[in-house]
Design a protein around this nucleic acid. Sequence first.
DNA 1: CTGCACCTATGAACCGGTTCAGAGTTCGCT
DNA 2: AGCGAACTCTGAACCGGTTCATAGGTGCAG
Lengths: 355, 355
Amino acid sequence: MVLATGADPSDATKDSDVRRTVGVRDVAKRAQVSLGTVSNVINTPDSVRPRTRARVEKAMSELGFVGSRAAGQLRSRKSGLVGVVLPDVGNPYWADVLRGVESVLERQDLTLVVGSTHQDPSRQSRLLRALTQQGVDGLLVAPIDKLRSWEPFGDRRLGVVALESGAEPDVGSSISLDNVGGARQAITHLLELGHRSVVFINGPRSVPWCVERREGVLAGIQAAGLKASEVLIEVEVADLTSANGLTATDNLWGVYQPTAVMCANDLVALGALLSLQRRGLRVPEDVSLIGYDDVEFVEALRPSLTTVRQPSFEVGVIAGQMLLSGAARDGGERELLTPSLIVRQSTGPAPRASM
Amino acid sequence: MVLATGADPSDATKDSDVRRTVGVRDVAKRAQVSLGTVSNVINTPDSVRPRTRARVEKAMSELGFVGSRAAGQLRSRKSGLVGVVLPDVGNPYWADVLRGVESVLERQDLTLVVGSTHQDPSRQSRLLRALTQQGVDGLLVAPIDKLRSWEPFGDRRLGVVALESGAEPDVGSSISLDNVGGARQAITHLLELGHRSVVFINGPRSVPWCVERREGVLAGIQAAGLKASEVLIEVEVADLTSANGLTATDNLWGVYQPTAVMCANDLVALGALLSLQRRGLRVPEDVSLIGYDDVEFVEALRPSLTTVRQPSFEVGVIAGQMLLSGAARDGGERELLTPSLIVRQSTGPAPRASM
DNA sequence: CTGCACCTATGAACCGGTTCAGAGTTCGCT
DNA sequence: AGCGAACTCTGAACCGGTTCATAGGTGCAG
């Protein structure tokens, strides 16, 4: 699921509709049992004698009974909801992570509620607040911002898992990827190909893993005995989408003509590729291009994209397991995964004429 | 957000935790007002004198008050939730529709709860049931299956909007695309290029718009004075993903060698393209390929993909507006949008040597 | 100074599924 | 038949924010 928020739902039409929904009491009356028994049929069917259960179930279907989660949740303090806060569900990378989470939570009666922050801190806190109000039992967050006030979010029944959070969170468990290492591999690859004028299109500094990827880039440059100020041009886009990648590259090219473009994200790289191709530049002969994530479609691009592969599905699986195992609640568990560079066609030797 | 479902959340740990959450009563006591006033501050701030309001707000932040949606919803019969049921949020097309919906519902205090059916009818009914239990105020559904028992879902406060439902739903409003026309344009394009051996990779027959696209294909063939049985090879995949597109094409090629492949979906076309390229076939010289949706990245593929463009974002916007305007509740409103063929590089004249 | 209209604040009742202590049954065994 | 353990079933109380009829307060006109 995805979440969005807004301002005023109160303009509901006057509902003079008197028809009430059928509740446990109606079912109980019809099945000639007490309301407690109906509740038992719903929650602990084994504790009800088969004959009775059948009667209740018959009554339920005859009446078209659909329970109200809200009422149950109020008393039981369980919502059966797991909140997931991601930068952007539209990004295939995160969609993949989500599939991983789903695959684990599948057999539990847990419902995923997913929201996108679009790299916007205020959106993040709105989402977190909304999810807390919904009473989610567990929370998976890829923080876009240092989470200041975790307090109310922390004591979920199943706990909290931070995905790709730079700093170690003070509650719950976390699962991270070595962004520094991944970015460093990428930039090193470019430097080894002779590139000495590289543009790095990154996300906002407030995002932990953007900061880390930048660190990796700087570290790689330094390790090669070069100065970042002479080699690197940094560009920042608010949201890591292909549209922004395209615009950023378009704007940039009026000012600089680097021999390589490195993107914080495959989506941005896609945008950059479109911009370059429209401009008539050949990749990788004129410009090398490198992405990050190894999203499914980049293999089919021509040229196919060199990128840094992240085990997206696995991240989701581990996160889901942490929730179920209780590690997310008890905290302290840390998982660190390593990305790997996938060299394809979009990167090649720097052209001679370059600086 | 995305929804998933499962079987048993009961293994919660015994919480001996006695700490209760702060409620309106706690806030009321601290602010020296009645609990009703606290409720007013939350819901109708203007009806509370500024001085009083300030006192309550201070108390709320001091106590770290986070309301419980469940409790409020129980009494007010408003959840502030809008359920969205889509085939696959991972598909950029639907992600786009979603963005459209979000853009409209943004300023309302509505939370989107999104779930993917993955073309699975049982998943659809599970989702619908789960959303109903959550008490969603409105529902957007792209039905994957004739919805038999709409009854309990129908009387949402904001109503129901059916996206791309083949048959006219009996409740709510609908917004559809001319799938017959779109598919017909695509197949006609291929036939005009001389193709007489075309594979059509489609989704399951249970999905309304898959059926419609098939109809369009058949109509186009007939209109060209040809027989479907002699021209068309039909393949069906369960879920319209690139992985399935790849496998289907791989398997198929052992048996047939058509001169063109038409896919019900750009994602499937992407898979097909990968399969063809791995096999060493040139597109479009050896095989023409055509997709459906005009998802963002297909323009960047090489060859860029010929496809049928659908106004995805607009679909979302209209759907959102129908919900807000009450058209979704009162029903009867029908919107029909028209897709258009976008010819790019992946289609070309049929090779001579073909049958 | 009284009356009346309007604005605020109050708090008991309520929404509907779950809990749990206790009553009622069933059944095996002596 | 007699007895206790185990199993079923019962229903009042409860979760916590919202509703709404009512009470209290303020200000202005008569």
